[in-house]
């Protein structure tokens, strides 16, 4: 039970990570790929957050009942701030991805990988 309690968060994170990867590499629809990307990034954020979380620790906001010197009483805030940045990066990535998606749609009128490959083959035949 101890073992489970200590590690189940990591196990789930890994599972979600794999789901995300699966979405990115095995889904044939480009939008699905972006959804996979989103899940993948969320999983990484989850990983960092669970790294920082501590049994018995509290939110890293200064609280008068626990003096700052009692470091064990607080969680490590550094991963949190890092993850804010990571979220920003994720959103930016998705923004670019959407831009590309719309562009691809405008040029090929499809977002399915198979159809795209066929279109490319036709292009190269000319």
């Amino acid at each position: 039970m101890e073992m489970f309690l200590a590690n189940y968060a990591y196990a789930f994170t890994l599972l979600i990570l794999c789901i995300g990867l699966y979405g990115m590499f095995f889904k044939r629809n480009l939008v699905k790929k972006v959804i996979g990307l989103s899940i993948f990034q969320a999983a990484v954020i989850m990983f960092f957050v669970s790294l920082a979380s501590k049994m018995g620790g509290t939110v890293p906001v200064k609280w008068d009942e626990i003096p700052v010197e009692m470091i064990d009483g607080y969680m490590n805030p550094l991963p949190h701030t890092l993850m804010l940045t990571a979220i920003v990066v994720g959103v930016a990535t998705q923004g670019v991805a959407f831009g590309l998606l719309v562009n691809i749609w405008n040029r090929f009128k499809t977002l399915e990988e198979d159809a795209l490959n066929e279109a490319i083959l036709e292009d190269s035949r000319d």
């Binding site: 954020i45 957050v49 920082a52 979380s53 939110v59 949190h80 979220i87 920003v88």
Partner: peptide
């Protein structure tokens, strides 16, 4: 995230994600 103690990350994820 919020339950794990990362309030601001949870907050951002809710707004953004």
């Amino acid at each position: 995230f919020a339950s794990m103690g990362a309030v601001d990350v949870g907050f951002t994820e809710a707004v953004v994600g």
